[in-house]
Design a protein around this nucleic acid. Structure first.
Lengths: 192, 192
DNA sequence: TCGGTTGTCTAGCGATGCTAGGATCTAGTC
DNA sequence: GACTAGATCCTAGCATCGCTAGACAACCGA
């Protein structure tokens, strides 16, 4: 019995190693550099081992995304908990969100840009994803304003942040003046 | 002399064929399906011919993006010109923009999602891209509000639309209730 | 100690973007 | 009208990609 348990532990450990290595490699050199060969070499196993843990590269991206969702929820809640008014909370949330995207571009891509094979905005959406959205909803829902659904407001505000994050990082927006753009959103979208 | 001119014409014609075919294929089956082999087969030439027109696949994407930018500018201007007030113009612009993204997903990706090797938001940015932004600026600049730079306002509003467009199409946002989300942006971001 | 399961690796498939080198066809000259 | 020089195009191939079949080795339970 204990032998099997040890093996399970080791297997789980190796799975964590795969995800962590993929993430590291993606942050260092971009997701294009995360090939199954390179990944296998870094974890010091052969390629097929990856496929005994994940169906394919997509699922590995998905695993990184889930990890990232949990961290993002933590980061957002940490930032908003330090604020003292609804308005302040929104500002703190916006900055925490964009900060996360800037500091973890590869994770952010895995979450919102790439195909990780995860279902979003559905019943079977994984818990970390639902919780990340919940973290946004907690602070944004209270400033939706009269007659506006909190979920809908959260989605819209989130989409705006997402637009800023992606366009900036893709070089479509000049990188300076990020701050005033965020201010604009924070000043005008919330109500009440 | 006239022989060379004919050859030049034929060459330009073939280049248009390549771009049009790439775009068509991308809209039909997604950009992943646009491989140099398939593209070559469709235009009934061999692969190397593609490389006598473009440096590589990236440049082909870039060419599609430029074509799309021109069309988007036209679409936006057509929609806004029918509106009678600044507020109406903003609403018309938002709908025209999202409509374009929905109707031409592959072109939209080439413009704002994929790497087409084009410089954005710089001096050497190609004219079609500058003009597409200008088309947005024309209608959005007038509702920036006091003390807010029109360009900055345009960028921010655009980013919000972009966020809605991409998150919706990537399945990250539930596809219903698009309309009230747009309304929210149109109602609250503009001023004056 | 043996037999069978479980785990891992080597090797290879089809596909990708891209390119070198040869073949073919055209254009201008005698 | 024949010939050479150059432009034009294609065949074939490289390295790399995600993924997998099948051989091999290591381990566990009897």
């Amino acid at each position: 019995m204990s032998v099997q348990e040890r093996k399970q532990r080791e297997r789980a450990e190796r799975e964590r190693l795969i995800v962590a290595t993929a993430r590291e490699l993606a942050e260092q050199q971009g997701w294009d550099a995360v090939t199954t060969r390179r990944l296998a070499e870094r974890i010091e196993y052969s390629q097929p081992v990856l496929y005994s843990h994940f169906r394919g590269k997509r699922e590995i991206i998905g695993a990184v995304a889930l990890e990232g969702a949990t961290e993002m929820a933590v980061a957002v809640r940490a930032a908003t908990s330090r604020a003292n008014s609804p308005r302040e909370r929104v500002a703190a949330l916006a900055h925490a969100y964009l900060d996360f995207a800037t500091r973890n571009p590869a994770v952010y891509d895995a979450l919102f840009q790439l195909d990780g094979g995860l279902p979003y905005a559905q019943e079977d959406t994984p818990e970390p994803l639902k919780d990340a959205f919940a973290a946004l909803l907690e602070s944004l829902g209270e400033v939706a304003g009269d007659g506006v659904d909190p979920g809908l407001f959260t989605e819209t505000f989130w989409a705006s942040l997402h637009g800023l994050a992606t366009l900036t990082r893709a070089g479509r927006l000049p990188p300076e003046y990020i701050e005033p753009r965020v201010e604009l959103l924070v000043d005008r979208l919330p109500m009440g």
